[in-house]
Amino acid sequence: MNIAVTEPDLIVRREGAAGVVRLNRPKALNALTLEMARGLDAALTEFEADPAIALILIEGAGERGLCAGGDIVGLYNSAREGGDLGKVFWREEYVMNARIAKFPKPYVAYMDGFVMGGGVGIAGHGSHRIVTDKTKIAMPEVGIGFFPDVGGTWLLSRAPGEIGTYFGLTGETMNGADAIHTRFADAFVPASAWPELRAALTTASADAHADNVRGILARFTMTPEAGPAQRHAQQIDQWFAHDTVEAIFADLERDRSDFAQATLKALRAKSPTSLKVALKLLRIARDAASLEDCLVHEYRAALQVFVSYDFVEGIRAAVIDKDRAPKWRPATIEEVTPDIVARYFDDRGDDELKLPD
């Protein structure tokens, strides 16, 4: 009798001097659960203390991508039931995001295929971020009544011009070239070269350091052609320079180009409240001194998101009923008052979020 062997959702192992962490939920596009986040954090603790481990390698199982984000179905069920999964999950996830950014050993993230939301959190703060000709990175949270989190406001606000604001509010997908331009990634490597590059990384010497890893990557790195968003950088910088969503809409409405109208259509499909909250978070992030400062603001806002109508409604429309027709409350940006937005910026939860020094 054949007995099926079920692999864990997170595979942690040593390969030579590399500590390898593989997200292993390919049928769910490796969506990140609380248990996986805790497993990754435990792996980092183990590998950091092990002198035989020179670098960390993060990858996703299957051929579709690294990680489609957090397990939003679990968050949806908890929010509907009045649970606290959101508070616990985001708190532990954000602490891990900050830890990744300060990890003392080279942290190599293979961002092939889909990398969305929480996937950006475990890859985008790494020291060596690889994208490919198949990469599709997005922070589409405004489409489910949320906002770019996991330190996404820090990353987006440090992109050149207003391209980060564009990606944060529209939720549009960036390819590998746009990811390099937006400073979400460091090296563009064709997916076909990954097996050879991976072998080079996992056979690096035990005393390899960041310069060694950069040297290995340089042997495989190519310069891609400009991505779609980069080619529209001048228009994006004009439209998204405003500090209000209303002004952004107005600029887009005046521009009758196909790209402007497609951008406007994308924005109109998002939660009006999320658009305003996300834009304010991005502007705060622009002046922030650190990733940790951004994570504090994101956590405060996330606690309000978890008890909001739009979050449950957005997930329902996107992944539960899949009708793609959310009924937002308020329904228009004009109806989202300053008082509504202010709820997402109350001082709360700071004593719970124990970020690393």
Rank of each mutant, 00 (worst) to 15 (best):
M1V: 14
I3E: 13
T6G: 00
P8F: 02
L10Q: 12
R13E: 08
R13N: 02
R14E: 13
R14V: 05
A18Q: 01
G19V: 04
R22H: 02
N24C: 15
N24F: 13
N24K: 14
R25S: 03
R25H: 02
P26D: 08
P26C: 08
L29T: 09
N30C: 00
N30K: 09
L34V: 01
L34W: 01
E35V: 11
L40K: 05
L40E: 10
A43I: 08
D50Q: 08
L55H: 04
L57Y: 13
G60D: 12
E63Q: 14
A68F: 09
G69R: 05
G69C: 10
I72W: 10
I72H: 10
I72T: 09
Y76N: 04
S78P: 12
E81F: 01
E81G: 10
L85Y: 09
L85V: 05
G86M: 08
W90F: 14
R99N: 08
K102A: 15
F103K: 03
K105E: 03
M111S: 12
M111D: 06
D112F: 01
F114I: 15
G118K: 08
G119Y: 08
G119S: 10
G124Q: 01
I130K: 05
I130V: 15
I130Q: 02
K136S: 13
A138W: 03
M139I: 08
E141W: 03
E141Y: 06
F147C: 02
F147S: 08
D149L: 13
V150C: 12
G151N: 02
G151L: 05
G152I: 12
L155V: 03
L156Y: 06
L156A: 11
S157F: 04
R158S: 00
P160G: 03
G161T: 11
I163F: 06
Y166F: 15
F167M: 12
G168F: 04
G168W: 06
E172M: 14
N175H: 04
A179T: 04
H181C: 04
T182R: 00
T182M: 09
R183M: 11
A185C: 09
A187I: 00
A187W: 07
A193W: 07
A193I: 03
W194A: 09
W194L: 15
W194I: 14
D207T: 14
A208G: 05
A208W: 05
H209R: 15
N212D: 15
R214W: 02
A229K: 01
A233L: 11
Q235S: 03
I236H: 02
D237E: 01
T244R: 07
V245W: 03
I248C: 04
E253N: 11
R254D: 12
D258Q: 12
A260V: 03
A262Q: 14
R268W: 11
K270T: 05
S271K: 09
S274G: 13
K276G: 05
A278T: 15
L282C: 04
A288K: 10
S290H: 06
H297T: 11
H297R: 13
A301K: 12
S308E: 14
Y309H: 15
F311A: 05
F311N: 06
I315S: 02
I315D: 13
R316Q: 10
R316T: 13
A317H: 08
A317R: 11
V319F: 09
I320Q: 07
K322Q: 15
A325I: 04
P326N: 11
I333V: 15
T337S: 15
V341P: 04
V341T: 07
F345W: 01
G349F: 06
G349I: 01
G349M: 09
D350P: 00
D350R: 11
D351V: 06
L353V: 05
K354D: 13
